[in-house]
Amino acid sequence: MEKARGYVHTFGEDVNTDVILPGKYLNVTDPDELASHCMESLDPEFPAKVSKGDVIVAGKNFGCGSSREHAPLAILYAGISCVVADSFARIFYRNALNIGLPVLESPAAAAAIAAGDEVEVDFDSGEIRDLTSGETFASAPIPPFMQEILADGGLIAHVRKQRA
């Protein structure tokens, strides 16, 4: 997989799917419209601040709460290339990989990387380089089975390939 490179937006602990994409927008299915409301409850300006390829860095239990896939879709279509967190809630983790949004667990990176830093993420090695501070962090590698899903472009493409 190609490396991701972009500027960092930081968030705290227990960022739930209600703040990533509020329930009042769950009648929306257009991903670009979902992206325009991404993180609205925490920072209404967030979609305007993101440049394509930027990275979210957050604390523990990112994506807790509802199973709404609207949340990772909003993040992906807002232009975020990767989410790095101390840990992820399990349904969010699964949904993100299923739709092709890479997510990496790295408590060290989550603790050290500052907002605005430029980072480079190597998905094959799981290495996260903070180009601003010069520090490098390891992350728990994405399990091979899930890397296959990502490489195939998401779960649907993966299942189609398996069934072909």
Partner: peptide, 14 residues
Amino acid sequence: TGVGSTDLAVGMGT
């Protein structure tokens, strides 16, 4: 257990 819509799609289909 709860899942998202892509897992739901795969479950419905397969």
